[in-house]
């Protein structure tokens, strides 16, 4: 191993910090899903089916999100229609 390799290696992120970063993202994502009510995936699918009757869209173009505030919940439906 040359001296250049030594310096190059230092620049790279350590594998442990990479692991931590990836875990923080996936765990946060999975926790937010966990708090969703059980009916949400089925509801999302049915909303998709209704929209598909009129417009041809992909699954990724519909984002359903439920935010719980103190005394009310907000259901946010975000649909990107094709041009």
């Amino acid at each position: 191993m040359s001296i250049f390799n030594y310096f190059l290696k230092k620049e790279k992120k350590s594998s442990a910090s990479l692991a931590k970063e990836r875990l923080q993202i996936i765990v946060a994502h999975e926790r937010s899903k966990r708090q969703q009510p059980d009916y949400l995936p089925l509801m999302q699918k049915e909303i998709m089916d209704v929209i598909r009757k009129y417009v041809n869209i992909d699954e990724e173009q519909v984002v359903v999100q439920l935010d719980n505030n103190e005394d009310c919940s907000v259901l946010e439906l975000n649909i990107t229609l094709p041009e």
């Binding site: 594998s15 442990a16 923080q24 765990v27």
Partner: peptide, 17 residues
């Protein structure tokens, strides 16, 4: 392996969980 940053540390895991 934790010292050479190849393994998650106790603090990392505590932080996440």
């Amino acid at each position: 392996r934790v010292a050479s940053a190849e393994m998650l540390s106790v603090a990392d895991v505590e932080d996440i969980l």
